[in-house]
Write a protein that binds this DNA or RNA. Sequence first.
DNA 1: CCCCAGGCGTCCA
DNA 2: TGGACGCATGGG
Length: 222
Amino acid sequence: MSTADLITDIYERLFRAFGPQGWWPGETPFEVCIGAILTQNTAWSNVEKAISNLKAAGVFDPEALLEVDHSTLAAMIRPAGYFNQKARKIKDFLSWFKEVGGFEAMKGMETSALRESLLSIRGIGPETADSILLYALGRPVFVVDAYTIRVLSRHEIIGPDANYYDVQSLFHESLPPDPQMFNEFHALFVRLGKTRCMKRGPACPDCPLETLPGYPPIVDRP
DNA sequence: CCCCAGGCGTCCA
DNA sequence: TGGACGCATGGG
């Protein structure tokens, strides 16, 4: 079985097991951008609390949010953790957003150029930039996260030293550039990450990847 | 009490 | 380049 076939097989297994995930769990492209920053190494349930606070305060738009001072913003996003760092990241993103000309201008930019520009913002790394490209703008960019690398590594589809770009290239070379499919696939990896078989302890008996080469997926299971 | 979550920047070798 | 560390709350 080729690597491309294995990846396609993983997608089909996950989709069969979990069904469509309906990502991104936000209503607007702007909400995707703010959510992508707030969810860095943070449970989504905590991000929801932070976004609720912003909406309740009536500042959940690019112009108003930029006017909120640092400590006020930090207090409002407190449930999402790392609030001082994330308040700064949001401000830096909003300054960039205003400078570049908003979503209309972003839509006119080439994906690679837009990606580079997003990465130049302090606090926007590869996963956050790619989340914005895919989930806010519908670009065919595969979002890699810790779960993705963990799964592929533990099934020995990639080496233990593979980095973000190695893994992203693998998906880009193995799959057609279909934003809807990339959308679903990444969401399914996250969904798998919430299951028992991705954590320490006994494997889950009905893991969708159970019969894949390299199972059990958690090789460092105690 | 513990571990972990949809990362990222900095520092240091 | 890449590993260790700080950042912080909330849920299991």
